[in-house]
């Protein structure tokens, strides 16, 4: 069996790299009976938000997808990306363990099976000027990627701007926008030291990628092959999680070396942002009732 694996991120991105690693290990574990060809950089023409559908319909047998981009089809997949709900590696682990059965059901419903999940580094704010107090948000013209991000920053007092990635660089260069909210990884992918002097480590949102396999493709494997792949996924997932933490540290260091000043978020700022964030949790439960149980269990577990 030869499987194409669709990866929307550039070949240098660590999700693409861990996909390569997974492919190598799968080939070894199945003695070359199952080979995975990683197609990074969106080479197959998939951009990300359609990935759940692409694997469901068998357009690609394997794909890695950002959960937060699939909320148009399955709103529950946005649960871990609620602002300030999940803010540390251990909290990431807790929410993933609690939500995994629900994720599995969703994957099943969409004719696929989750192989493993990997977190993204937290969402920070890259800006041309430093935000020191809550009033500072008013000067931000910030690029956001979806409705939730726009809503959150609008409430913080900033002017959110949704624009395609291709416009972000010229817009930052000429001053149409003066800030972007994204992870340290994407900050490096976009070479943000060219345009922004400050990275505010506010970590307001967590994101996850899941790698899934189409069930029809999966069922073509022998039970031994299936077991071998599941074992590889199980063995590598903790390593990928460690790598994700390392990735954040490395990328922040790289940004810092390139001259981006790291701004630790101060208490007033943090309190202000969290105060705007927590009502979103209940709003989300009202919209997606299935999230209620998971969020309650999670809050009890992490004492939030």
């Amino acid at each position: 069996q030869t499987w194409d694996m669709a990866v929307a991120y550039p070949p240098g991105n660590y999700h693409a790299k861990s996909a390569e690693r997974f492919a190598t290990e799968v080939a070894a574990a199945t003695k070359g009976e199952v080979t995975i060809k990683v197609q990074a950089g969106g080479a197959l023409g998939f951009k990300g938000p359609e990935m759940l559908a692409a694997v469901r319909d068998g357009l690609v047998p394997v794909g890695t997808m950002l959960l937060n981009q699939q909320v148009g089809v399955e709103p529950l997949l946005g649960i871990a990306s609620l602002p300030y709900l999940v803010s540390s590696p251990s909290e990431m682990r807790t929410i993933t363990d609690l939500a995994r059965p629900a994720y599995d059901r969703i994957a099943q419903k969409h004719n696929q099976k989750i192989l493993y999940m990997v977190p993204w580094p937290g969402q920070n704010i890259f800006a041309k000027t430093e935000v020191k107090a809550p009033e500072g948000f008013r000067s931000l013209k910030i690029r956001t990627v979806d409705r939730n991000g726009s809503d959150f920053f609008r409430e913080l007092g900033a002017s959110p701007a949704q624009m395609p990635w291709g416009e972000v660089v010229p817009a930052l260069a000429t001053g149409v926008i003066n800030s972007v909210t994204t992870s340290s990884s994407s900050g490096v992918d976009g070479q943000f030291w060219d345009f922004t002097s400050f990275c505010h480590l506010v970590n307001w949102q967590s994101n996850f990628d899941m790698v899934t396999v189409n069930l029809a493709a999966w069922k073509k494997l022998t039970p031994d092959q299936q077991k071998a792949i599941e074992d590889v996924a199980k063995r590598l997932e903790p390593e990928f999680w460690k790598a994700a933490e390392q990735e954040d540290a490395d990328k922040l260091k790289l940004l810092s070396d390139k001259g981006v000043k790291m701004v630790q978020s101060n208490d007033t700022l943090r309190t202000f942002m969290i105060a705007k964030a927590t009502p979103k949790w209940d709003a989300f439960i009202a919209q997606v009732p299935a999230a209620k149980e998971i969020i309650e269990k999670y809050r009890a577990a992490v004492k939030k």
Binding site: R147, R154, A158, S159, P160, Q162, P164
Partner: peptide, 9 residues
């Protein structure tokens, strides 16, 4: 309003 979120879309 600070932005017209649907403009690009």
């Amino acid at each position: 309003p600070p932005d017209l979120p649907i403009a690009w879309e």
